[in-house]
Write a protein that binds this DNA or RNA. Structure first.
Lengths: 237, 237
DNA sequence: CGGGCCCTTGACGTTAGTCAAAGAGCGTGG
DNA sequence: CCACGCTCTTTGACTAACGTCAAGGGCCCG
């Protein structure tokens, strides 16, 4: 139980909250194990709990009525989801599913309300976490609306090798079906888009991406999609 | 100044907050007038203020480094933006621009912090507002990732005639360039996608949309995009 | 009347989805 | 150890969707 509290304290949401304020809340939570493929909560369901990922991977997704799934988040150690539980009467706006064997800290909504009521510091922590979610969503929206599939992959790879320069090798953290969903495309398109990154010095081997130059990739990720023709002409000559 | 406080109190964010808790905060805000095209705040700028739309229309957008703009929100009376200001040290994750002559209530970040610190009720109100933003973003992502342009328009039109049934006429609340941006497409595509809704009983005349049957449109908005061929074959025969 | 902006239309190219098939791992059981 | 079946991934051919470029019409306002 010791490593559990440490993990939860260093999580995204509680990172900047004094130890004392969170201990009580965390101690009321329970650890839930979820195997790959297990559903954690459903879209539209009453937001009964807050979750913190202690270990593993969780995807947040939106199901359209025709059965089409859109991944809106992929979370790992220290990430937090189900913030809707902080507000009485809310429902989950996404579904959540473990995409790898995972350990979660589950905190009951009522305990949460009580904690928030009695401790303003916690409330602000939630506000911060939700704003952070917001930023992530806005970023994703921006990517989706004004970048090609290949550029979104570039952005994704770059997010995996933050602060690196020059050459670097990154490990793809989950399978390509999920990466495709997360980036808003089909697996086939992902596969092809990886190919299109080769001219920019990116090679994929199994679950590893070899990036020749982070700078070059960055330039590609930011460039205007509408001038692909001129780029291409310039490049194939 | 009287109608101002009323408007602000009935805004999205303060709607469920007791009058007393907000009066003080609102009184510290200042009214800002913005004409069409005026920039309200920039992406990346320190989040110095919270804004509440009293009148007019505001768009939130994300600018990619290549100058491509993605609209991530379109706000009107009672809507609130710049919640990032509630957390010290935050920056705006989007830009904001008036797309029509607008009146805004601008509340300084420091006043906000003070108010939140001294009143937990307000803090929870912000949490609720941010969660609400979150839901909207998630909805938009879902639409973008798993629906065609025509379906997104259908969803948009339906959001304008909530709770209506059968035939109905809605007024497009802003110009088509902005609608296109908001729905993640180019104006040309919007124009063509409107045509594609005609078989489903939608006609556009100037800034009005005539919907023959809300139910039929709803069915179209939710249907699986991948079976368009069979639908089409079935329809043109 | 003229200029500017918004909107539409047409022709065309690129991008990504669909359908189908085959290759690459990988664990299981013989 | 190998054959088998499974899932993940890649590839190919084709199609649909959307963006781009260019032109033209309608409308407002000076």
């Amino acid at each position: 139980m010791k490593p559990l509290t440490e993990m939860a304290q260093s999580s995204q949401i509680f990172r900047n909250v004094p130890r004392m304020d969170v201990l009580d809340l965390i101690s009321k939570g329970s650890v839930k194990e979820a195997e790959r493929g297990a559903s954690i909560h459903l879209q539209g369901e009453r937001a009964h709990s807050l979750f913190i990922v202690l270990e593993g991977w969780v995807k947040l997704y939106r199901m359209s009525s025709c059965g089409n799934e859109a991944v809106v988040g992929v979370l790992s150690n220290g990430d937090c989801f189900g913030e809707a539980a902080a507000v009485p009467g809310e429902v989950f706006s996404t579904g959540a599913e473990a995409v790898a064997a995972s350990k979660l800290l589950q905190i009951d909504a009522q305990d949460l309300w009580h904690a928030i009521d009695s401790d303003p510091v916690l409330c602000r922590a939630f506000l911060g976490a939700t704003l952070s979610d917001n930023r992530a969503l806005v970023h994703q929206l921006g990517q989706l609306k004004s970048h090609t599939a290949a550029q979104r992959i570039a952005d994704f790879l770059l997010s995996l090798c933050k602060d690196e320069v020059g050459e670097c090798i990154v490990v793809l953290p989950y399978d390509k079906v999920l990466i495709a969903g997360w980036l808003g495309m089909k697996p086939e398109s992902l596969s092809r888009a990886f190919r299109r990154l080769e001219p920019y010095g990116v090679k994929i081997r199994k679950d590893r991406a070899l990036i020749q130059s982070v700078e070059r990739l960055l330039a590609f990720a930011d460039e205007d999609p509408s001038k692909s023709w001129s780029e291409k002409a310039w490049k194939t000559s």
